[in-house]
Nucleic acid binder design. Structure first.
Lengths: 172, 172
DNA sequence: AACTGAATAGTCAATACTGACTAGTCAGGG
DNA sequence: CCCTGACTAGTCAGTATTGACTATTCAGTT
């Protein structure tokens, strides 16, 4: 229900239409959710059917008509519940990049090390991007700081793994 | 393609039937992938159709017949490609738990802090579980170490966030 | 020899998600 | 005043994923 929490949270601050929501999520919240357009419209339909949000047909100039969504009192109650659950809980993080690590013995040690150095560069690029991101308004700033903290920790760990692999290889 | 990489990597070491694969993944690789039963069978079917793996009908005692899967030469080639891609690349981590943080201003500061303290306990429990996990064979050990490293970093960050919230609240 | 709970082995209907597409509008250049 | 590329707004068909279910076997108990 994380995506629902996100959409409700945004609609709670102001009524918006689908495209507007999408744009905001992609520009401000890209660091914590990956929400594609069809998924967003799907969720909006579902939440409207559940009575969490309502909409009216809006028109602006000659543009095609669009639905402007608003949160309902039931939606606000759901938002409050989901928010509390989210803040109190913890969902363990899975690193899909660890699968390769588990099978790295299938390659010559030197090649694994070379590939992991490529990975290190990729991580560094993400870190630079997050570090130099323009300040985001409100709570989104925290998300960027979290991402930076995490990427620093990842880089540290990756360096350690590479070092250990080099030492193990040298000893053979 | 991470799950495919995982299944190919396991079948590469020895032929196995679906249930056996599932069990191994859930017991040894639970820290890095979440693979449900129907998904695993779906992927096995798909990979068999693509010619990456083959199977023969096996029977053991009176047990129901089952498919024992083996990797094919094409599958081995795919495995090598996926492994290199995985080792060299980096997929940014999304923390769904950050969504709540972005909206924490919707609750009284004291309640947010209380809820985040609950989260801290949950993180600590995961950390204790990962720290005391019995040694896993081969590459899986690295995954646990990564998880521990990550959880320590998360705990640090969470403490920092809670502290900052308390200070901000005290200043009002 | 019947019963119970756990393990084995898988399937299916329903849900969730996404790549690729449609279709109209607007701003600016030629 | 027509063309082009970018923006707005959304849909749809196909793929991926999962909760819930079926059905058999085995070990131990009564």
């Amino acid at each position: 229900m994380e995506r629902e929490l996100l959409l409700l949270g945004l609609l709670r601050e102001q009524g918006m239409h689908g495209y507007q929501l999408l744009e905001f999520v992609e520009s401000q919240m890209a660091f914590c959710v990956d929400l594609k357009k069809p998924t967003a419209y799907f969720l909006l339909d579902k939440m409207a059917a559940s009575g969490w949000i309502s909409f009216e047909q809006g028109q602006e100039g000659n543009r095609p008509p669009r639905r402007v969504y608003h949160i309902t009192p039931e939606g606000e109650a759901v938002f409050q519940r989901l928010l509390r659950e989210n803040l109190a809980g913890y969902a363990p993080t899975r690193f899909v990049t660890d699968i390769g690590l588990a099978f790295s013995h299938a390659l010559p040690a030197q090649e694994s090390i070379r590939l992991l150095n490529e990975r290190r560069i990729a991580v560094k690029e993400h870190l630079d991007a997050a570090s130099t991101a323009p300040p985001h308004p409100g709570g989104a700033q925290l998300i960027i700081e979290h991402q930076v903290h995490h990427l620093v920790s990842e880089l540290q760990w990756l360096n350690d793994v590479i070092l250990r692999m080099q030492m193990a290889d040298a000893h053979l």
